[in-house]
Nucleic acid binder design. Structure first.
Lengths: 296, 296
DNA sequence: TGAAGCCATCGTCTTTAATGATGGCCTGAG
DNA sequence: CTCAGGCCATCATTAAAGACGATGGCTTCA
């Protein structure tokens, strides 16, 4: 048994047929057939049931399939490991919460891009759940998400700490003064946003329930909307601090148990840590230190 | 790059030379040389530095090596997974503490051996540290050790709970009555035994320190020695209960925080769980239930 | 009933790998 | 100093493995 055998096997299993696998593998059907037959012979067990519509995995085939994919992944990773000679370069796909991307990452990204011009960094934003899913699916090397994350396949490292505040129009001095009923909407980034549920919980604990929602695609949209008195939102203090100083917004601190959230950098436990990623993490840590220093 | 390439690469790296690798792989040196050269060409990086005494890994080679071994292991595991058709059979290497082997395992082993005659079970005894090391080195599929175990590479499952007691000659009714000084020895299974440190700690907390040690290779040896009044030892209650009833020994219960230890069944997180092992774990759990029932 | 899609088989051909002999290089013993 | 014994590189040759294309049998669906 050989990795090449497993590659063919995997394609046949995934595509459900030898013809289709042959097409994908840029070879002919007879070759696929022969190699599968040989593999079955060597393993001493049939891997597929043949029928007229194609083939189907047998029990033995189902046991083999996960190994075929794992071996394939490992070989690809090995190649990357050999090519990664310690100088960050190549593609680097990172995920992030939109707020983190807006508040924390600009200096990090700027420093990183300047220092490692050979890296093609792609930043991908979305909710924590989306980002975690993509990291697990190996679509992203790592992501900034709302921590703490407890998943056996992931390792996390806390990198930023945010203080979330309620944000309202500047005329609202105290939360009591919030208008009730249809006049007030909660404004969130979009469905599934990590902060949405949190905001609803926070308001609910203060007896404010059943609010309408307004969804935006950008943080600027949200801020504009809140400035205009259309609603209330929940954002990191650092996002709204300057707008607040300018008198355009008011923010309302929350107790630590509600307002403190940490942002964690998560990645698959078993995935290769490229030099590009390691360097990025260094930059992110440096950004964190700088922030902490500034706060002192 | 292919698993066959990696197999050759791994042998060359491990043996430090192409001639030696060729001998191990049952082929000729020129073949090894050619394939390594081809592999280097395809990867675009030299993997070995050649010199007159043999070869040495380059940085790129060092990055590749762990993948070579992992791919090799994965293929071997894949073969086993295909062959394992759900009927427990083949070799099964288990580790255990000696006390667990003596007290808990006999019924489990008997039931297992009777039920699955096709399994070649090998029981390996030693200290927790030894067993854990061997599980990590993949020399054992799993082991019974003194829990709880916290290691990222291992998964554990508590299976037995032991009550450890101090064991003395029958004439010793209370611990106060223990003779001090050279008259008393602590009797342990052997250096490195998990219970040794525990016993010393327990005695130290009662002001008994600096005792001589006496080491034995078997539990029977220890018991005989304690019966004869030569020393004190620490053993699971279940080991000494019958001897105590017969008036040959006295045992002295310990508070729960000192005397309760759990025995955990540990295995590598990433290792294949053979049907034989799964069935064994079932038997062990059944034994645990039986014990618990009997205790009620 | 016939076209379309599927897999199995076979002989041929190409590519790849293995072999054994040779040569150059270095090292350490005599 | 020299020579034997280890090492790796190279090359022509041979053996094996894999890929190919054509064919045929089977089932399904129109």
């Amino acid at each position: 048994m050989d990795s090449a055998d497993l590659r063919i096997f995997e394609a046949v299993a995934r595509l459900g047929g030898m013809n289709r696998a042959a097409a994908e593998l840029n070879t002919v059907q007879s070759n696929v057939t022969a190699r599968i037959r040989l593999l079955e012979e060597r393993l001493g067990a049939p891997l597929f049931d043949r029928h007229s519509r194609g083939v189907e995995l047998t029990a033995a085939g189902r046991r083999l399939l996960p190994y075929a994919t794992r071996v394939g992944r490992l070989l690809a990773e090995a190649r990357r490991a050999v090519e990664d000679n310690g100088v960050p370069k190549g593609p680097l796909d990172i995920g992030s919460l939109e707020t983190t991307a807006a508040v924390r990452l600009p200096p990090v990204l700027a420093a990183y891009a300047a220092r490692y011009p050979e890296v093609d960094l792609v930043l991908n934003t979305g909710t924590s759940a989306e980002m975690i899913e993509r990291v697990l699916a190996r679509k992203l090397e790592a992501a900034f998400v709302c921590g703490p994350v407890d998943h056996p396949e992931l390792v996390q490292e806390p990198v930023f700490e945010e203080e979330l505040v309620l944000v309202t129009a500047p005329s609202i001095r105290r939360l009591d003064a919030l208008p009730r009923g249809d006049d007030l909407k909660i404004v969130v980034l979009r469905a599934g946003c990590s902060y949405r549920q949190k905001l609803e919980d926070i308001l609910a604990r203060r007896g404010i329930v059943g609010l309408r929602r307004l969804e935006f695609g950008t943080i600027d949209g949200i801020i504009g909307c809140v400035m205009a008195g259309l609603g209330v939102t929940l954002l990191p203090l650092s996002v709204v601090e300057s707008a607040s100083r300018a008198g355009k917004l008011a923010y309302h601190p929350l107790p630590a148990n509600e307002g403190r959230v940490e942002t964690a950098f998560v990645r698959r436990r078993d995935a290769f840590v490229s030099t590009a990623l390691a360097a990025f993490l260094d930059c992110a840590r440096a950004g964190q230190v700088a922030t902490a220093d500034a706060a002192d």
